[in-house]
Design a protein around this nucleic acid. Structure first.
Length: 332
DNA sequence: GAACTATGCGGAA
DNA sequence: TCCGCCTAGTTCA
């Protein structure tokens, strides 16, 4: 259940390992057989993310649009080049386990080394990672190649060195360039696409016009791209903003603050692979919070627990068919 | 092994 | 507003 940061990480992984290379495409599960046949053998030209959508461009004016939805995930295997601007390379990206762990793939351990752990890679037996020369000592020479297909793989993309398996997406479809542009045009600004200052103006203009609760606006992908249920709850708490405040009643400066917070959280998320929303804690506080992976947020999934700031019980309500967590005192 | 849950979203009613 | 999609980890029996 990835929010925007995961999708950007996945796009970057494709940029490093697939772009510029011919790709074998198949649909082991069969549900994307026609599309895979179209892509088979074509060179991947570009990989980009806009909000929660990812677009892969192939030779012949053909785009692949993928939306992971609630359950989707990409599993990478084989050679996985490490983006130096990104703290970790990966096994599994997108899906996470049910304990609230929101980590993509490999993490940095205390020593600052890349280490393969099961965190965020709940089915690590399926992830045969042969790291690039930029990492060390993680060669898996005995891994079968290409990796055996396990489970429902909608789409497998394969180069000589790297394999990417897509499972459970909400959307996986081919698009013409016009269709791709039309999809993007419907999306609100993404801090990592285009000029973030322009994005801020668009965001402010829309929010300040709407009578809709700010908690709903933040989740509306036509208002702002990439925010999901976790970032929504956390951002509203960080702004100490009542989730029910109509967009047009949120002071302009607070709207701008929300956008800038999203810019910051997304950057941290893409860099670390974690939905780090408590970055302003002291190191000691942060260590304590991280000690329990189930409890690393201000309010998300903390219903009934005391607010970390004021001790009030965190509230849980349904809003727009999603669970909304907030502190009735801090966000009054 | 069944039931439950999830970071999403489109379409029917 | 509700339902269905579609996957897999976790929890509980």
């Amino acid at each position: 259940m990835p929010e925007g940061h995961s999708v950007h990480r996945i796009a970057r992984q494709f940029a490093r390992n697939f772009v510029g290379l011919p790709v074998h495409a198949s649909s082991p599960q069969g549900r994307f057989a026609e599309g895979a046949a179209v892509l088979e053998g074509r060179e991947m030209l570009q990989a980009m993310a806009v909000g929660k959508q990812m677009f892969l461009e192939f030779e012949g004016d053909t785009w692949l649009r993928v939306h992971l939805g609630l359950y989707g995930a990409w599993d990478f295997a084989g050679e996985i080049l490490v983006d130096p601007t990104i703290a970790s390379a990966n096994g599994r990206m997108g899906q996470t386990n049910q304990r609230g762990t929101d980590l993509d793939g490999v993490i940095l351990d205390d020593a600052g080394e890349n280490s393969l752990t099961s965190i965020g890679a709940p089915r690590k037996t399926r992830v045969h990672v042969r790291m690039s020369e930029q990492t060390k000592g993680l060669a898996d020479e005995d891994a079968e190649w290409p990796p055996p297909v396990v489970g429902q793989v909608r789409l497998r993309l394969l180069t000589d060195a790297t394999c990417a398996d897509l499972r459970g997406p909400t959307a996986c479809a081919l698009q013409t360039p016009d269709e791709m542009l039309a999809t993007v045009a419907k999306l609100g600004p993404d801090p990592l696409v285009g000029d973030p200052a322009e994005g801020e103006e668009r965001f402010v203009r829309i929010v300040r016009r709407k009578p809709t609760a700010i908690a709903l606006l933040l989740m509306d992908q036509s208002v702002v791209s990439g925010i999901g249920n976790v970032y929504r709850a956390e951002m509203l708490f960080r702004a100490r903003l009542n989730p029910h405040t109509p967009g047009r009643d949120v002071p302009e400066e607070v709207v701008r603050q929300l956008w800038r917070d999203w810019v910051r959280l997304l950057a941290i998320g893409v860099e670390t692979g974690q939905m780090m929303t408590m970055d302003d804690l002291s190191p000691e506080q942060y260590r304590a919070a991280m000690a329990s992976r189930d409890d690393r947020h201000w309010v998300y999934r903390r219903a009934g627990l005391p607010c970390r700031v004021c001790g009030t019980e965190i509230a849980l309500e349904e809003l727009g068919a999603r669970k909304l967590y907030w502190c009735p005192f801090c966000q009054r």
